[in-house]
Design a protein around this nucleic acid. Sequence first.
DNA 1: ATGCCGTGGAAACCACGA
Length: 257
Amino acid sequence: MRIATFNVNSIHARLPSLVRWLQQTSPDVACLQELKTPTEKFPEAALRELGYGVIWHGQKSYNGVAILAKGCEPTEIRRALPGDPEDQHSRYIEAVVRDVIIGCLYLPNGNPVPSEKFEYKLRWLERLRVHAAELVRSDQPVVLAGDYNVIPTEKDVYKPERWVDDALFRIETREAFGRILEQGWVDAIRHLHPDATIYTYWDYFRNAYARDAGLRIDHLLLNATALRRLRAGGVDRDVRGWDKPSDHAPVWIELAD
DNA sequence: ATGCCGTGGAAACCACGA
């Protein structure tokens, strides 16, 4: 069972390359972030034509998340991260696909530091920690996949010293992410490739992709039951080099059935 | 080493992203 996450940076602008990627790699589950469309304008028919069931939570201009499931309908559990009923951002959606619980998330960027945006990011991480504490104990496999906007370690950024004061790499951010991992979650890609340089995002400017000046910020966290089934994982790096690309590349894992 | 690019939405610039 292949489970992938892809920040598309606009579902409309990315539809041609999203379709191409789905046809080429045929993931069983695809978690999408940054739809940048109102719920009612989501291109549902185009995805169903490819054989995917889909649930999504849109928002005008910003954010937006979706879960695609090949050949079946995702069974929605929730479409908001618990802990703040006032939070209007569409950043979390959760479903069961076959026997796997899938959380699809788009964590706040948080820049500049300090700012209300950074405070929001830290609050969001804390809400995720509280919710993840419930999920990690599940006997079912659980995968928390998405754009975390967190650079976990110095290995995950091309030039760490340039990023120490950025919201993605600030010590508060890394520590908050670390408190989630401490519950027992495993960063699947780092687990499979402990020493490799792996990026999932490259800026549009400064020729970042060609220079491989990237960040690893898209992650799939697994609970113990999911980890036992983990067989492989990687980044579909070439997608970042296609025409009209997102600034993120898809990341995927393979779980044994 | 700075939103330099990309996207959406409203207006012919601005917010936002990482």
